[in-house]
């Protein structure tokens, strides 16, 4: 039954206004997710949103799909059980940069390595916004945060390179500014069997922006444009300049068999075995 449901079938409009700060891009990502689900005609009851803790971890409260809001860093671990408990579900893990890559880093690399059929959407705003703007594993080297007043002494992760190395089937990077690309990548990630990861470089005008980017909410959004470059544009850059930019685009798109497919092939099971319909 293919009915065009519209994003409002997934988005809890009566929960507006959103709790996020003015100029925070989380709402933009949420809109893209709900639009993508609508375009794909996935019924809300076949979707589970698994969130971690942090600003982006509040997203589940705006969804009308099934949802799980657990502990800090564990959205993928809970999501692994949710998916294996009912393989027909579309499991979407929403994590911030600290949630996915610091406290949840172990689950992240192993979910990608297993290539379990989950879509991870990482809102990367370069800091811990919820707790007051401390530095995270993606904060650029030397940036000012509340726990690095003299600058961060640690280089940040390349989330996409990490995902690729670990074994994810689909890896893409975009920003909260590039909204059509954002929706396109999320759609592709949802369609991909196996682990898919969309990194969304996001705004945090309240904390990261205030300390590192002169200006207002608009300046913060322009910063996302300024620090990113397309794959084609990236290739044309001098080696020295490449370090200054984050490349956007579909960076990995491959067809390794996902965890459950391999597991079921090796463990065929009996008649009551739930194999899922895949998608």
């Amino acid at each position: 039954m293919a009915v065009n449901l519209g994003y409002k079938e997934y988005f809890k409009s009566d929960a507006l206004p959103l709790m996020w700060c003015a100029g925070c891009g989380n709402g933009i990502i949420l809109r893209a997710i709900t639009e993508a689900l609508s375009d794909l005609h996935i019924p809300p009851h076949q979707v589970v949103i698994s969130t971690g803790i942090g600003c982006w971890g509040k997203a589940d409260d705006y969804m009308k799909t099934h949802a799980f809001h657990g502990s800090h860093g564990r959205a993928l671990a809970f999501g692994t059980g949710i998916k294996l408990g009912n393989p027909d579900l579309h499991v979407i893990a929403l994590m911030g940069d600290g949630d996915a890559l610091a406290i949840g880093g172990n689950h992240f690399i192993h979910a990608a390595r297993r290539n379990i059929d989950i879509t991870a959407i990482i809102s990367n705003n370069f800091n811990y916004g919820m707790t007051g703007g401390q530095y995270s594993p993606t904060t650029p080297l030397s940036s000012s945060t509340t726990t690095s007043p003299a600058g961060v002494a640690e280089p940040g992760f390349d989330v996409c390179a990490l995902s690729e190395t670990c074994g994810a089937n689909y890896v893409a990077r975009t920003t909260a500014y590039h909204v059509t690309q954002l929706k396109r990548f999320i759609t592709a990630a949802l369609l991909k069997q196996g682990f898919s990861m969309v990194e969304v470089i996001n705004t945090c005008p309240t904390h990261f922006g205030r300390r590192n980017i002169p200006g207002d909410t608009v300046s913060m959004m322009k910063y996302l444009k300024d620090i990113t470059v397309s794959k084609a544009g990236y290739e044309k850059l001098d080696e020295a300049d490449k370090e200054k930019y984050l490349v956007t685009g579909e960076l990995v798109n491959r067809e390794r068999p996902d965890y459950l497919s391999v597991y079921r092939e090796m463990n065929p099971g009996g008649p009551e075995t739930d194999r899922g319909e895949g998608h």
Binding site: L18, R31, A176, V179
Partner: peptide
Amino acid sequence: RLCELRCPDF
């Protein structure tokens, strides 16, 4: 519709 999609607050 970019303004609609880019509005963080629906």
